[in-house]
Nucleic acid binder design. Structure first.
Lengths: 330, 330
DNA sequence: CCTGAAAATGTAACCGATTACATTCCCGAG
DNA sequence: CTCGGGAATGTAATCGGTTACATTTTCAGG
């Protein structure tokens, strides 16, 4: 591979000049610049990123740590982040399957020298620990979890869930089942809390038989819905902890010949792209996921740019109630 | 940040020994190993990736160049690739929005020193040019495009499309519309070709009025379906170039009060996860996208491992006809 | 034509690891 | 006790850039 030295030799200049040309330094004659450019192209030279970032201490890469890559949620998130990164000439290093503290710690470690900043999304409680004993100067943004002294963006899960359940209650439902997310999951816990709060505020007694645990996948939603079909008296509404499970539930209900929303209403959370195309279209709490990702990236870049006098902030983005036919007969 | 020198000093050994410990060299006394380990942990040392890859010439990263990140297709693909990479301790560098030749060339360039290998997916014809004037020793795998002398995996688009249209013909349809993909798109062109072939083999004359151009997004499918509703005599079946457009078409047809499949049958291509949950569930040509990604990664790693005596191969994976209710009344 | 400051270019140290090669240590055989 | 050889460790070159500082060039003003 061609190195900067090869180019320097061929162009009859020093490596410093070649470097200056490639970094747009004004300290180069126009003539020299052109000559170096031409030679670079001729030799097919492109700077070695590792070498460059070793000496310049910048990588032009930001890391994204995700618990998983399954489903549209993460896809949208990455898209939002990438959109912002792209604009600034940054690349994305994606690492997934980091659910446990130890895995996250390992992943965070392995990012040293690879990235200029990190977006960490992990719904597991305590996920922020490994992040906190990173050097304070290293820019990190937590997504979906908050921690003192660390930048974070979280979704107003509880408020969103509460509003959705209030909507169901307003529609006359009293027996409202919930398909919970995994129990170690922060978002899941908050959404459950919103559900309980709405019920208790409406004076509806709690019935543990209506709480079914899922794992945020569509198949678990399917199974959960089948369980809910057997409740007595049967639930008249299902609030799923996320859209994927709601979609699964719709499938189970339709297979069982249940009319939606006449017999059972169904609502989800997230507003993934497919939600508007299900049958019937799914009521949900909209979180503009791509926008969330983009916002996260913007915030991270701020931190990267400042990275001295930067003060951590936490930000909570509200969800928006989207009522579609799955809870609202025409 | 702690460097290898700090650790060496604190542990009273040389940098070479520290390096050996971290790379699992057998040339270290058990006692020394333990001491170095302990000091490393105490100082919170983790090796600087850029430095490491500069001297070792390995990055433990593979690059993925995609035209876009929108929709489940790419999400699934990344998931498949990541699954394989993860196992081998590799990270993924994702770059998207590379549709034109020049952009691809730039992206490929910028990967030097960043990745050990590259998976390039670009449906634009000629996308492989920039890849070909990479040093032959650099492992690249083309996805969805083939080129002599370069590893590649492609989907049997034409065969899959042909089978699907044959299925529609078998169901008695004669006026079968197709929603095409973008016309520069290779996959789109091949699927169109399969469609035409099936028709001509069945002796059905071509009707350009039944060819509507879309851009692989659901909204374009929606619009296309509205156009198709106005054909006279009206088409009785729609074959969409991908599932996203088919999903959009379903939405338009339902909004227009058309029964599916009784009035108009609809089929797609890809079998994205949502296809089985649409109403009615969508007939499609299944391409196991995650498996495709995983396969691509496996192939790439083979090339990375060998990268001397490696001979390029091209591989075509067949699609599988999935018949669901959208083309098949019970 | 000379002078000196600004502009252009060059030299070499440095970033933080890996690793070839050199050196020291240890231990059993003679 | 000495010697030889393998095991353990150390020294220093190297990877390919960036950049502080040194040096040379250029050219306006005297």
């Amino acid at each position: 591979m061609t190195t900067i030295k090869d180019v320097a030799r061929a162009a009859g200049v020093s490596v410093a000049t070649v470097s200056r040309v490639h970094n747009g330094s004004p300290l180069v004659t126009e003539a020299t610049r052109r000559r170096v450019r031409k030679v670079s192209v001729r030799l097919g030279y492109s700077p070695h990123a590792a070498a460059r970032s070793l000496s310049s201490k910048k990588t032009s890469v930001i890391g994204v740590l995700l618990p998983d890559l399954y489903g549209e949620f993460y896809s949208e998130l990455i898209r939002g982040i990438d959109q912002c990164a792209q604009q600034r000439g940054f690349h994305l290093l994606v690492a997934s399957s980091h659910n446990e503290r130890a895995e996250i710690a390992a992943a965070v470690q392995s990012m040293r020298g690879r990235v200029d900043g990190l977006i960490v999304m992990s719904p597991a409680p305590g996920a922020h620990r490994p992040v906190k004993d990173l050097p304070a100067s290293f820019p990190v943004l937590l997504l979906g979890a908050a921690s003192a002294g660390v930048d974070s963006i979280t979704v107003a899960n509880e408020a969103g869930a509460r509003e959705m359940v209030q909507h169901l209650i307003a529609k006359g439902h009293r027996r409202i089942a919930m398909i919970l997310g995994p129990k170690e999951n922060q978002d899941a816990a908050e959404r459950f809390e919103g559900y309980r709060r709405a019920l208790s505020e409406a004076g509806i007694p709690e019935d543990a038989g209506l709480h079914v645990i899922g794992d945020f996948t569509d198949t678990s939603g399917y199974d959960a819905a089948r369980t809910i079909l057997n409740t007595t008296p049967r639930a008249t509404a299902i609030f799923a902890g996320n859209d994927a499970m709601a979609v699964g539930a719709l499938g189970a209900l339709r297979a069982a010949g249940v009319r939606i929303p006449e017999d059972i209403a169904v609502a989800g959370f997230d507003d993934i792209p497919m939600s508007r195309y299900t049958h019937p279209p799914l009521s949900t709490v909209r979180v503009d996921i791509a926008a969330l990702g983009e916002r996260a990236a913007v915030r991270l870049f701020e931190a990267v740019a400042n990275h001295r006098r930067h003060r951590a902030r936490r930000e909570v983005v509200p969800g928006q109630l989207i009522i579609r036919a799955s809870t609202d007969s025409p």
